[in-house]
Structures are given as structure tokens and as C-alpha cells.
Amino acid sequence: MWNFDATSSALLVVDMQRDFVEEGRPMEVPMARARIPQMRQLVDGARGAGVPVIFTQHVLYDSFNVSPLETANNQLLLTEGMRDGTDGIEIVDGLDARAEDHYVRKHRYDAFYNTNLEVLLNTVRGYRTVDTLVIAGTLTEVCCESTARSAFMRDFKVAFAGESTGALSETAQSATLDAITRYFGRVLSNAEILQGFTDGATEARR
């Protein structure tokens, strides 16, 4: 089993947007909202250790259907949710997203698909320095898991934040954590990730 090394890591916070998180929004995920404090711990810890923070934003359009199979599964998305140019695609205030952070706009569950994420990871800390992706956010069983599998296929080590991901149910959460542990990476607690960030910052100063 590989070791978690923060000096070659990046933190990816998946789809923590207002339309996914806030009460009454079209794609509300209560578990994701409840875990904002845990996610904020990771964001703050990453910043303090010099680990890049990347936010994804799932974006749909009114002018045409950019994700037709997604909207076929959930027809609500034909008319509302994560619309370009609306506050629904904004990252929730509780995570303190900043201009100096990095942002990836996507139209599929997998944050690597037709986005700049892989190029960003291969350059953000120097040429191919990042080999580990810490994944937090929502939905655990959809975009987080799809992105984790895609990262694994690209030979990135996957550190999946079990306490800082939010699913639609505890059953779905457990199923994804089991799949990641068995096949695609390591499920780590916040304490393990934060300790890794601290150790990495200490090592970088030597």
C-alpha cells in the first residue's frame, strides 16, 4: 500500500455548489451540507501546507442540453439546476473559495472528462510533481466516485476523504467507500489527511 505524501498532492473539492448544497436547491444533498465543516478543515489544512486547492463546478446550459443522458436520468435538470451564469454554480460560502484557488468547469460526472484537470495536476506544482489526489465533496457515489476511478486509471494515487464527502444516503456512502478501499485507492480520515498535510509542510521547510 502506498503512503500518503502531501508534498506531491492536490486537494480536489467536487461540486460543492449552492445548487447541490443549500436547503431547497434543485439538487440538495443534506449530507454534503452537514459536512461543510469537515471539508473546510481540509481546505484550510491544504492552504496552510501549500497544497493546491481545486474546486470543480458542474455546469449546465439553458441554450442547449450539454449533458443529455444526465438530464434523461433526471428530467428536473432540463429546466433548472447548475445553470451557467446563475448563483447555483457558485461554491458555497462555508468553504472560503478564493481567487487564488483553481477551478474546473465540467459537464460530466467525471471531472477529468473534457476538462483541464489533468493538465492542471501535471503542472500546478511543477512538471508531473502531483501524483496523489485528495478527493472531497459531493455526490460521493456519483461525481466523487467517477472522478476517483478516472484518477486511478490515469495512475494518480487516490486519497478519498471519507468524512468529507457527502452522498444521498448512508448506504450509498458506504458502498463507495468500500469500492474505493477495495479497488481504487485509500479512504482516509480527516485526521490522517491533515496530519499528512502537516508532515508535508514540515518536510518542505527542511
Rank of each mutant, 00 (worst) to 15 (best):
R105F: 13
E90W: 07
G81S: 05
P37C: 03
S67V: 03
V43H: 07
R47G: 06
V104R: 01
Q38S: 11
N73W: 11
M39H: 00
L42F: 06
I91F: 00
V92L: 02
E80V: 04
D84F: 11
A111G: 05
L76G: 10
L95E: 00
P30M: 07
V66W: 00
V51F: 14
H58I: 01
R47F: 12
A72G: 01
G94F: 07
A99W: 08
L76R: 15
F55K: 04
D110V: 07
F64N: 07
V124C: 09
Y103F: 15
G45K: 05
R35T: 06
H102G: 03
I36V: 14
V43I: 11
V124P: 06
M31T: 12
Y127D: 12
V92G: 00
G81T: 01
E80T: 10
V66N: 13
Q75G: 06
V66E: 00
D96F: 03
V51L: 13
V124K: 08
H58Y: 15
F55A: 06
G48F: 12
R35F: 04
T86K: 09
L42G: 05
L42D: 04
G81A: 08
G24Q: 01
R47D: 10
G45R: 09
M82T: 11
N73P: 00
V53F: 08
L120Q: 09
E80M: 10
G94H: 00
N114A: 15
V124A: 08
G85D: 03
R108A: 13
R47I: 09
M82K: 04
R25H: 03
Y61W: 12
V21N: 00
R47H: 10
P30D: 06
V43A: 10
L95Y: 00
R35A: 04
M31H: 11
H58F: 14
D44P: 01
N65D: 15
A46H: 02
N116G: 14
G48T: 11
V119L: 15
Y61S: 12
V43L: 09
V104L: 04
A99G: 06
E118M: 12
Y103G: 02
I89K: 06
R128K: 14
T115M: 09
E100M: 02
V43S: 10
E80F: 02
